[in-house]
């Protein structure tokens, strides 16, 4: 457990010291959402209908953007080798890094989501479920993305490749995240969608951590 905390503390330390990085991710997230009305047109009723979809797609893209650096820096400066050689299991270290990533990108996205919901004229109930869905959904984004980030270590043009690999895998989270919000807006229950998002997270937690650790081990060889 302490190995987990040590790595988590260091990664948060690094993130805070390089504060600008997590800021850029949040700014990218806000920017995408702001651009949409220019494309789709400012009519409030259209915006309200597409609001949850736009916010979720923006969250997906923002998390993909920030994931490329997850293992890349440690891979280049040799820390990843030393981390895999430490007495702490690599899966624990991957989990610590994913938690750090979620705290530095997932959480800021959730905090800015209400502002964007207002911009897109989303009603209040929808906003509440949106935040709930983001809280349950974004950890799976970080987990699945971590597998992608581990796979592209050492690859040419890693960033674009990462998006190409993991966006299809993000689809279930996107579909159920958006439909949770739409269900509430149209007056239905959203419990089922949130439960499925939770199930997806619980499945992703062990599987993705293990897959990422295996990919790192073969990347270090």
């Amino acid at each position: 457990m302490n190995g987990f905390m040590t790595v988590l503390k260091r990664d948060l330390h690094l993130a805070i010291r390089q504060g600008i990085d997590s800021m850029t991710v949040v700014m990218f997230f806000v920017l995408i959402v702001i651009i949409f009305p220019f494309g789709v047109g400012p009519e409030p009723n259209i915006l309200a209908r597409v609001a949850s979809g736009v916010i979720w797609v923006a969250a997906l893209l923002a998390s993909t953007l920030s994931l490329e650096r997850l293992f890349q820096i440690d891979y280049e400066d040799g820390s990843l080798e030393l981390l895999s050689l430490s007495s702490v299991a690599l899966e624990v270290i991957v989990l610590a890094k994913v938690t750090a990533h979620w705290l530095t990108t997932g959480l800021p996205l959730i905090i800015t989501a209400p502002l964007l919901a207002v911009l897109l004229n989303m009603n209040k109930e929808g906003l509440l479920v949106l935040i709930l869905a983001l809280v349950v959904g974004t950890p799976s984004l970080s987990l699945v993305g971590a597998v992608g980030a581990a796979l592209i270590l050492g690859a040419r043009r890693g960033g674009v490749l990462l998006a190409l690999i993991i966006l299809p895998l993000y689809l279930p989270v996107l579909i159920f995240g958006v439909s949770a919000v739409d269900a509430i807006i149209n007056g239905f229950e959203a419990k089922a969608q949130l439960l499925i998002l939770g199930a997806f997270f619980l499945a992703a937690l062990p599987l993705c951590t293990w897959a990422a650790a295996t990919s790192i081990k073969q990347a270090i060889e």
């Binding site: 690094l14 010291r17 280049e76 400066d77 040799g78 820390s79 030393l82 050689l85 702490v88």
Partner: peptide
């Protein structure tokens, strides 16, 4: 993990974080 715990490895890279 047990083996990792009983060795120190110094490779070509120095694993120094510029910010820390």
């Amino acid at each position: 993990e047990g083996h990792g715990g009983r060795l120190h490895y110094v490779g070509h890279h120095d694993a120094i974080k510029p910010v820390l």
